[in-house]
Structure formats: C-alpha cells, structure tokens
C-alpha cells in the first residue's frame, strides 16, 4: 500500500503538522512518497522520495496549479491514497484533486477503521461516522492532532515536478496575526468565555471569576465572531495556543479548533449544561450546570 503525502509550506517554512502525515502512514504500515511545493530549505527530515515543485514558480497557494502537480505525481507513483492535513490548504486543495482524479474523498479522518474504512467526526464533533471509499486512489484529509507527529529521519531523494497551465486564483499576500490584547500563553489561569454565556453583557461575570482566580480571560471563536470579545483573547487554532495550570471553559462546547488550542492545559474545568459536549472529552472536571448560575455562585464562595 502506498501513500502520497502532501506537505505544506508557508512563508518559506515547512509547517510542523506535515509530520503528522508520516505518523498516519506509519500507523497504516504504508510506503510513502511526499509532494511539497516549497524550496530546498523546506525539505522534511525524511529518507524517502520528495517531489519538489518550486514555490517561487508555483506559489505557496495556487490551488489550480497545485492540483495538477499532485496529478503529475499520482501518475508517476500510482499511490493508493493521497493524504492531506485537514487545514486551510488541505480542505481547499483536496476536493479539487479528488474531482480531477475522479476519486472518492474522506475529510477529517481521525482513525483507521476495520475493513478499509475511516472514522471521522460529524455533528460538530459530537458523533463519529465510519465511511468506506469506493475505488482508488482515495483522497484523505487528516484532522490535526489525531495522529502523532513523526519525523522519520534521513535526507530525501528530491525529484523535481512541474505542471503547465494558469491558476484562476491570484495570491496577493499574507497578513500577520493581530496580536493585540493579552498574551494568554504566559497566564497560569485562564477563564474562557463561550457562546453558552448567552450575551455580551454577561461577560463581566466571567471576568470576575478570572480576577478572583488571578487569571486572564480567554474566548472561544463564536464569542469573537459575535463581537463580544476582542480577537486578541481568542484561544484555538486561529487564536492563541495556551497551556495554563488551570483552564476554566465557561459555556464552550469544544470545537476541535478550540480544543487544539487548550487541551495541554494542566487542569481543565468545563462548565456546560450539555453533558455530551465535546469539551467533556478533554476536561478533568465537567460541571453540568447553567454557566450563568454556576459561575457567580463559585466566585461568591471563593471570595468568602
């Protein structure tokens, strides 16, 4: 069984999570080759074949050309699976590749299932489904963090790869992350606000608990999107990755993007009225309660 792994470069660097592709291939016991649109300096620590397309020529983001580069390597390697990470690059490119190859695609794989099936989350991570792709090659995207990062070691044999044509999407440039607000990465205690607090006016109640615990206030993505709190407070893949001694999640259901940003916290308390919310999967303590009733009661008891 052979996997073609699609690595990912941004601003001249190989993205760390590309190594999770090797972890997945190793777990599946597959032979591997990798395709990277990058440069010599972005090669992974890997002794296999790396098909390298010049990022200077093809751009780090140019999906219409990148899909043809994938196709060119697929024709040479004849892989059984073409594997991406489920990232802004992977979920954008994988369906284009699947359409071009007339291949089945399974998104956001979290585990291998028996008989050639794949397990993936559904219903906002609350449930799992197992699906079975029909035919080969199969296009997969992997959920970040689902498989361990693995650096195989060695120096790759580099094969150049090229593709012709024009892209329909013109890349204009990157915009750095807004880093105003608090540096949550240094906080020992973070009390985070989720949509479960109900409304913006309730946030001071949560902030008061943070103050009493000597911590900072964090936020989940929907809270930032709704304009209740500043983007500088956001915890998660698109915000800050934190690991305080104590993390208190108030009314946060636990989207995978949020969990990835806080699951390494020392001790996690989740306050949520939905006992099945995915946050329960990473919490040390789950308080099943209305956050706006529980938090003031907790704060009051703590100041006594």
């Amino acid at each position: 069984m052979k996997f073609l792994l699609i690595g990912e470069c941004r601003e001249g660097k190989l993205l760390e999570y590309s190594y999770e592709l090797f972890g997945f291939a190793s777990q599946a016991g597959a032979e591997t080759a990798m395709l990277l649109v990058g440069e010599e300096g972005t090669l992974p620590g890997y002794g296999g074949t790396v098909y390298l397309a010049d990022a200077g020529k093809y751009g780090e983001y140019n999906p219409d050309l990148h899909k043809r580069l994938v196709q060119a390597v697929v024709e040479r390697e004849r892989p059984d699976y073409v594997v991406f990470m489920h990232t802004s690059y992977g979920w954008d490119l994988a369906p284009r590749v699947a359409a071009l190859l007339k291949a089945p695609q399974v998104s956001e794989v979290v585990a291998l299932a028996e008989g050639g099936g794949f397990e993936r989350p559904c219903l906002s991570q609350k449930m799992r489904q197992v699906v079975k792709p029909q035919g080969t090659p199969v296009v997969l995207t992997l959920q970040g963090g689902a498989f361990p990062a693995l650096v195989p070691g060695g120096t790759p044999q580099v094969q150049p790869v090229d593709a012709a044509g024009e892209g329909k999407v013109e890349f204009l440039g990157y915009e750095a992350a807004a880093r105003k607000g608090v540096d949550l990465t240094k906080a020992e205690v973070i009390v985070s606000v989720g949509r479960g607090v109900g409304k913006k006016e309730n946030i001071p109640v949560i902030a008061e608990l943070a103050r009493v615990l000597g911590g900072e206030v964090g936020a989940s993505r929907p809270v930032v999107d709704s304009g209740w709190m500043d983007a500088g407070n956001q915890v998660g893949v698109t915000g800050q990755t934190v690991s305080p001694k104590l993390y208190v999640a108030c009314g946060i259901s636990g989207a995978i993007q949020h969990l990835a940003g806080m699951k390494k916290s020392g001790f996690i308390v989740a306050i949520n009225k939905d006992k099945d919310a995915p946050i329960a999967g990473v919490a040390d303590v789950l308080v099943v309660a209305d956050v706006m009733q529980f938090v003031p009661a907790l704060t009051a008891k703590l100041v006594k």
């Binding site: 690059y89 990157y174 698109t238």
Partner: peptide
C-alpha cells in the same frame, strides 16, 4: 483565514 491567526488575500 489560515492557521495561527494568519490570513491570505486572494483575487479571482
């Protein structure tokens, strides 16, 4: 929206 708060601008 890319990862880590970075954004990429594209034109089509």
């Amino acid at each position: 929206e890319l990862e880590g708060g970075v954004k990429g601008t594209v034109r089509l």
